[in-house]
Design a protein around this nucleic acid. Structure first.
Length: 241
DNA sequence: TCCAGTGGGAAGTCAA
DNA sequence: ATTGACTTCCCACTGG
């Protein structure tokens, strides 16, 4: 499942690379948005985690494709974009934040705390990491398999050397300074900061990216499906703990 | 005493 | 060139 998730993650990021290749300035377009929607539908449905592909934090802008494309300057970007967008039914268009790093360039890198939260929501990782108190964001590494989780993290990041729990814990201790994750005085136990926990939760994701009546283009069924899949995944994980 | 786990300084890496 | 977010190494400490 992890390999499949990584494969799809790569496919998803490749889709963004294509998107970027067709971009100019701050706004980024794909010539055929229906294809893009298809990619999103497929990848997101299978993997189910909003943090997996570096979604933007809520403070980042969400672009209204249809409004943006109506600007005169946009009309000459790509010959067929305007027509392509106009032909797509409202309910098949996706509201999606542009993946940007500070400065408006590049993809957002997966953070360790995002990876840990993702693992906590993955029932298959329950042998490595588990919720102690989900509502408070308290979690614990499983002593027997903590190294396995660390190795997976290292592979995910593409590190040269093997990641170990000790090294991963060093990174976790750095979170203590910024407050994203704090150490609980209990073996292998840590706690997410409330704000981070809220930001990573599916309901918060949903409220940030799906705002009915705001006039943004949205693919409601897609978003709802994502939310359902993610929530369902978390729920199953919760019950196994 | 042993050992797994913890804590932190310091330097290195890498992408943005 | 700078910065953020780790990564790597190393060593001292703690507690069961």
């Amino acid at each position: 499942a992890c390999v499949e998730q990584d494969r799809l993650g790569q496919a998803f990021e490749d889709a963004f690379d294509v998107l970027r290749q067709h971009s100019t300035g701050d706004l980024q377009y794909l010539p055929d948005c229906k294809d893009y929607v298809n990619v999103l539908n497929h990848c997101y449905h299978v993997t189910g985690s909003p943090s997996c592909y570096g979604m933007l934090p809520p403070e980042q802008p969400v672009y209204n494709w249809k409004t943006a494309i109506n600007r005169p300057a946009d009309l000459c970007l790509e010959g067929n974009i305007h027509q392509s967008l106009q032909n797509i039914p409202e309910n098949q268009m996706v509201q999606f934040p542009v993946l940007q790093q500070k400065g408006g360039k590049g993809r957002k890198k997966l953070r360790l705390f995002e990876y840990l939260h993702e693992s906590l929501c993955n029932p298959e990782m329950a042998s490595c990491i588990q919720w102690i108190d989900k509502t408070k964001g308290i979690f614990q590494f499983v002593s027997k398999n903590k190294e396995k989780l660390a190795q997976l993290w290292g592979k995910r990041k593409g590190n040269r050397k093997t990641m170990t729990y000790q090294k991963m814990a060093r990174a976790l201790r750095n979170y203590g300074r910024t407050g994203e994750i704090t150490k609980i005085r209990r073996k292998l136990t840590y706690q997410f900061n409330e704000a981070i926990l809220q930001r990573l939760s599916p309901s918060y994701f949903y409220s940030q990216y799906v705002q009915p009546g705001q006039g943004y283009l949205s693919l409601n069924s897609w978003n709802a499906n994502c939310n359902y899949t993610y929530a369902n995944c978390c729920e199953r994980s919760y019950h196994t703990c």
